[in-house]
Write a protein that binds this DNA or RNA. Structure first.
Lengths: 316, 316
DNA sequence: GCGCTTTACGCTGCGCGTAAGTATC
DNA sequence: GATACTTACGCGCAGCGTAAAGCGC
């Protein structure tokens, strides 16, 4: 014979109701089933738990003691189950998302805000670190998921494409390029370049573009924050090379953007999580929210300027 | 689907061992049974508890949390079961036995000592109160069992005969009655009587004997303690009427005893417990110990004197 | 290819419900 | 005699074990 929760539940129900009949109705079982269960439990414990005639049912000393301990235990178990179910239903949880600075300030804030509206119990921790540290964070488990652009050779991660975009040139509306539809990399020759620091993934792509165009542009400025770069561009101190989704970050600046061609350098922004490790329900849902926000941003692809501040239309 | 202890146990075993195979051996079940149990549990909770490939099995965040709570809960349950089993095996428990002063000092000390040797974990509470309060104590549950002589009209109690004995006259070895085999109640006429107080059950029986003999003996002394009565008897200040088992209490006194006849007044010493209420395992065992000690005392029936102090034999 | 987990499948036995029995008030 | 617990009995299904099939190393 073996102890099971049904035994405890039967016992507690009878103890609480003071008789078998109402307890059986409360448990949605036939009354003889309860008699059997309590009998089995008593046999298992070797003690009589109830003093019962056909007229009265009341706990023995042993039963009283057993009720005290088991009722608390069963309550704790309920809470444990409830707590882990809360994880499943996203009523509770934690998401640690690692992302590079640009993405942290562009897509993530809105996505996090939207997710938080729907699942206020889930704590979101945003780890804004350099792209090169993101894969390591995810693989070692310091982060649950990560955003960015990663080399296909990276191992131990699963990828989900969020969006694909091309690099664009950002410049002041007064810049001579403002009437161009596209800008070739070679046209950056002799332009004062406002570049991101070398730890940036974008900087690496920019260097590739510049090299493939056969020019050797030397950055006039090197900044780490995209906002700094945009401010410098707005002041017409030079041009910058940024992904198209930087437009979202640029909407408070008087800047325009033009697609860079020859070559078109595209960049896949993906969501990654550790392969082999299961994604938590909260992360799975968050991933979906992120995708939808990324798609909202994707139509911006090809938009060449910041229309909110400079209501001037350019041919796409 | 319904949560059962086997699910929790399966989960915890796998979590502890880190793989299904060794866990299954440890639980003495086939390995697929574990897979099924864990799978069912995960379905019930709506969360994946393990990240498992065929090569590695490790807890998810949800699983880790669930392990923390359930392992403690299952441990508590083990303790609860163990504790109530201790009651069954008499490793633990409590016996509250109500007894009148004489019995408290004669049979009970030895029986309690013997019981305590075998079951040191059982606490024994000796409630020495007047006979008239004993039934009430047992019926109301203030005591688990009671000793004494009770009217057959008493309700709500179950009786177990411990011993039957007759009233005897106790006197000094120098008393004229020392060469009598028996003493008739009528011979108590004009004897200075050392009586117990009216709350004593023995006193009631004595009064019955005196009345049936047609004499009207007026007590010279009224004492509440049997030891006091024996001391007075030893000092030859009078004779006393006591049950034969009082000899056991009298073994330190220089007193002799003679059976009282015409009529022989017998007294059933019984163990009682509340009817309808189940007797605890400890009380059941204690009852047996008491019976055996009472039987050891019963041969004393008819022994007329204290042989240890006065090595003189009297015809039975 | 080996060792682990999972899936498939048949069977045993547990536990439920229905029905009859028993005891208490 | 009414009511509530217990015993008896048959059945369905949960859960186990055996066997076969994925799936990583």
């Amino acid at each position: 014979m073996k102890l099971a929760l049904r035994h405890i539940e039967a016992f507690l129900a009878v103890a609480e109701h003071g008789n078998f009949s109402t307890a059986s109705r409360h448990l949605h079982v036939a009354q003889p089933a309860l008699s059997q269960a309590v009998k089995d439990l008593e046999a298992e414990l070797g003690v009589r738990l109830f003093d019962r005639t056909t007229r009265r049912v009341e706990l023995t000393a042993a039963g009283l003691e057993f009720q005290g301990s088991t009722s608390k235990i069963l309550e704790d178990l309920e809470h444990a189950v409830e707590n882990v179910r809360d994880l499943a239903t996203r009523r509770r949880g934690r998401i640690r998302v690692a992302a590079p600075p640009l993405l942290s300030s562009v897509i993530l804030p809105q996505a996090i805000a939207a997710f938080h509206r729907d699942y206020p119990g889930v704590a979101i921790e945003l780890i804004d670190i350099g792209t090169e540290e993101i894969v390591a964070s995810v693989v070692t488990g310091k982060a649950d998921c990560g955003l960015g652009t990663f080399s296909p050779s990276e191992e131990g991660i699963e990828r989900t494409l969020l969006m694909r975009d091309n690099l664009m040139m950002f410049c002041s509306p007064e810049h001579p390029a403002h009437d161009l539809t596209t800008v070739a990399w070679s046209e950056l020759r002799d332009q004062p370049l406002i570049a991101l620091t070398r730890t940036s993934g974008i900087r690496l792509l920019m260097d590739i573009g510049i090299e493939s165009a056969g020019i050797s542009a030397k950055p006039a400025f090197e900044v780490s924050l995209i906002t700094t770069a945009l401010a410098l561009v707005e002041a017409d101190l030079g041009v910058s090379v940024l992904p198209s989704y930087a437009l979202a970050a640029a909407r408070h600046y008087a800047v325009i953007a033009r697609p860079l061609v020859d070559p078109v350098i595209s960049r896949d922004v993906v969501l990654i999580h550790a392969s082999g490790r299961s994604i938590s329900p909260a992360v799975a849902t968050f991933s979906g929210v992120l995708r939808s926000y990324a798609q909202k941003l994707t139509p911006a692809q090809g938009v060449a300027e910041n229309s909110s501040r400079k209501p001037r239309t350019t041919s796409s």
